[in-house]
């Protein structure tokens, strides 16, 4: 796994949903870190349908925009700045799943 285990203590895992799959995450982690740790490098598609992923990991480039279900609507957020929470539902395409 790509999470460093040696010398790192994390809070007990929670679960988030990414494109319909249940993925483990730890409170405090960013969505980008959780997706990369799960091998989910694709975070959105461009106009031609080509996949895109994390580029700067500091909120500057906006490449890592994903869709998040919030208050009954899909909102776009930068995955690198968004922290996970229990049951968070993430989609890499609008309104999916």
């Amino acid at each position: 796994m790509s999470r460093i285990a040696d010398g790192v203590t994390r809070p007990a895992p929670i679960t988030v949903e990414i494109d319909g799959a249940m993925v483990p995450a730890h409170p405090g982690e960013t969505l980008a870190a959780v997706m990369i740790a799960a091998g989910a490098y694709r975070m959105r598609d461009d106009r031609s349908g080509a996949p895109r992923g994390l580029l700067c990991n500091m909120g500057t480039c906006s490449e890592c925009f994903v869709w998040i279900a919030m208050d009954g609507a899909w909102r776009r957020r930068r995955a690198c700045l968004t922290l996970v929470s229990e049951g968070l539902c993430i989609a890499t395409q609008e309104g999916q799943p």
């Binding site: 490098y41 992923g53 580029l55 990991n57 690198c80």
Partner: peptide
């Protein structure tokens, strides 16, 4: 633009 290509800072 391929996912997996990142900045060193990332």
């Amino acid at each position: 633009t391929l996912p997996g290509v990142m900045s060193a800072g990332a």
